Amino acid sequence: MDTIYSFKIYNSTSSLPLEWNSLAIDNIFLTREYLEILEKSSPTNMICHFIGLFHKEDLVGIALSQFLNLNQLESFGNRDKCIKTAVRNTVFKNFISHILIIGNNMLTGQNAFAFAETIDPIQGLKTLKKASEKLKIIFKNKGLKVHITTFKDFATEETTAFHQAGFQKHFQYCTQPNMLFDIPNQWKSEQDYIEALSKKYRDQYKRARKKAEGIEKRKMHLDDIIKHEVTIYDLYYHVAKNAHFNTFFLAKNHFRIFKELLKDKFLFYGYFLDERLIGFNTLIKNGNVMDTYFLGYDESIQREKMLYLNMLYDMVAYSINKGFKEIIFARTALEIKSSIGAKPQEMYGFAKHSNPVADMVFEKAFNYLEPKVDWKERNPFK
């Protein structure tokens, strides 16, 4: 007989069960503290809910949902201005502008849920599916019809449980891979990384470092982030709006709130030229894994100084020096991340359109609308 689980949906972190964090030990992105960041500074077109799964009175699962209203976006992304983009944007606005995500659209990887060891994972997924149906009703009562429900970012080995939990009629899709950088145990410093590179990529490293002469990298604290908040947002927004496609833009206070709530687990590095902030990157410590987060830069200086590549090298160096096991470089800029040693991991999602007719053509529409990125995988090591 199936174990029966119940669920509760919360719209505030203040009402979460006291034992919530005991299930988020392995993932900072499901902790009360991180969810409070979303509560206080999520994108303006995003509404978050938190889901608790229960066996009788015991909390046995936690999950995050995000509702995105794409109609509230002023721009989907400016890079590829063409007929296809215009068509894509029109279709998104009218047919798939209201998206309910079980997971986190601001990150790459399985940040959707965490189950206790005692839970039956198949029954847990079935219960989450029921919770997603309940959320659709909640939004319908607010006058917002959910077009698409999606469970996102699962590795190949994680997809089997979904098939067993009744997701066969969902469209299983695969988007751009997650770029992962594994750090060998024997590497103790940046020098170990440099020595592992082949001559071609060691030369690339030296050239990038030489180009960046004159730029000062500074670890920025909360008061620094507040002081430079306007410039930080401008640098971020420049990079974000030139992406192929966007489903959100960060709130202006996002990095300040992040630093206030996650403190030393959130790292913010500014890059200065003649005392002017010209770029920044951010890192999040997640156990023995380092997650890269958003960055920004002045495009004119970026090109001349190879700033983005230098940021990637800095992230690798810091993570090795501090004993991390892996760096999650996420999506975008796949080839340049590959050139420093990151490897692609395919990620899958499960999606269903609430309109049965639209659902029949959803797969074709998705394949047409999802930007395909041609890139060549590199291997920089000897």
Score class of each variant (00 low, 15 high):
residue 240 A to V: 06
residue 240 A to Q: 09
residue 242 N to V: 04
residue 242 N to G: 12
residue 243 A to Q: 15
residue 243 A to D: 04
residue 243 A to L: 15
residue 244 H to E: 15
residue 244 H to A: 14
residue 245 F to H: 01
residue 245 F to A: 04
residue 246 N to Y: 00
residue 246 N to K: 10
residue 246 N to Q: 13
residue 247 T to S: 14
residue 248 F to Q: 04
residue 249 F to L: 15
residue 249 F to D: 07
residue 250 L to S: 12
residue 251 A to T: 13
residue 252 K to A: 13
residue 254 H to A: 05
residue 254 H to C: 07
residue 254 H to D: 02
residue 256 R to H: 10
residue 256 R to W: 04
residue 256 R to F: 05
residue 257 I to C: 00
residue 257 I to Q: 09
residue 257 I to M: 07
residue 258 F to D: 04
residue 259 K to Q: 09
residue 260 E to P: 10
residue 261 L to A: 00
residue 261 L to I: 12
residue 261 L to M: 01
residue 263 K to W: 02
residue 263 K to S: 10
residue 263 K to I: 07
residue 264 D to A: 03
residue 264 D to W: 00
residue 266 F to W: 12
residue 267 L to E: 13
residue 267 L to D: 09
residue 268 F to I: 07
residue 268 F to M: 05
residue 268 F to N: 05
residue 271 Y to A: 03
residue 271 Y to D: 02
residue 273 L to V: 00
residue 273 L to D: 00
residue 276 R to Y: 09
residue 276 R to D: 02
residue 277 L to T: 02
residue 277 L to Q: 02
residue 278 I to C: 10
residue 278 I to F: 13
residue 278 I to D: 01
residue 283 L to F: 05
residue 286 N to C: 09
residue 286 N to Q: 03
residue 288 N to H: 08
residue 288 N to E: 14
residue 288 N to F: 04
residue 289 V to I: 15
residue 290 M to F: 03
residue 290 M to V: 09
residue 291 D to V: 02
residue 292 T to R: 03
residue 292 T to G: 12
residue 292 T to F: 04
residue 293 Y to S: 10
residue 294 F to H: 12
residue 294 F to R: 00
residue 295 L to E: 11
residue 296 G to E: 10
residue 297 Y to N: 04
residue 299 E to K: 12
residue 299 E to F: 14
residue 300 S to K: 14
residue 300 S to F: 12
residue 302 Q to H: 07
residue 302 Q to A: 15
residue 305 K to L: 03
residue 305 K to Y: 10
residue 306 M to G: 00
residue 306 M to V: 00
residue 307 L to P: 01
residue 307 L to T: 13
residue 307 L to M: 14
residue 308 Y to E: 05
residue 308 Y to T: 00
residue 308 Y to H: 13
residue 308 Y to I: 03
residue 310 N to I: 06
residue 310 N to Q: 08
residue 310 N to D: 05
residue 311 M to R: 05
residue 311 M to V: 07
residue 312 L to D: 08
residue 313 Y to W: 08
residue 314 D to E: 14
residue 314 D to V: 01
residue 314 D to T: 07
residue 316 V to H: 09
residue 317 A to H: 13
residue 319 S to V: 06
residue 319 S to T: 11
residue 319 S to E: 05
residue 320 I to E: 04
residue 322 K to S: 15
residue 322 K to G: 02
residue 323 G to P: 06
residue 323 G to R: 01
residue 323 G to L: 01
residue 325 K to I: 10
residue 331 R to Y: 01
residue 332 T to Y: 07
residue 332 T to E: 09
residue 333 A to H: 06
residue 333 A to G: 15
residue 334 L to I: 12
residue 334 L to E: 13
residue 335 E to D: 06
residue 336 I to N: 01
residue 336 I to D: 03
residue 336 I to F: 03
residue 337 K to H: 07
residue 337 K to A: 10
residue 337 K to V: 10
residue 337 K to S: 11
residue 338 S to T: 14
residue 341 G to S: 09
residue 341 G to N: 08
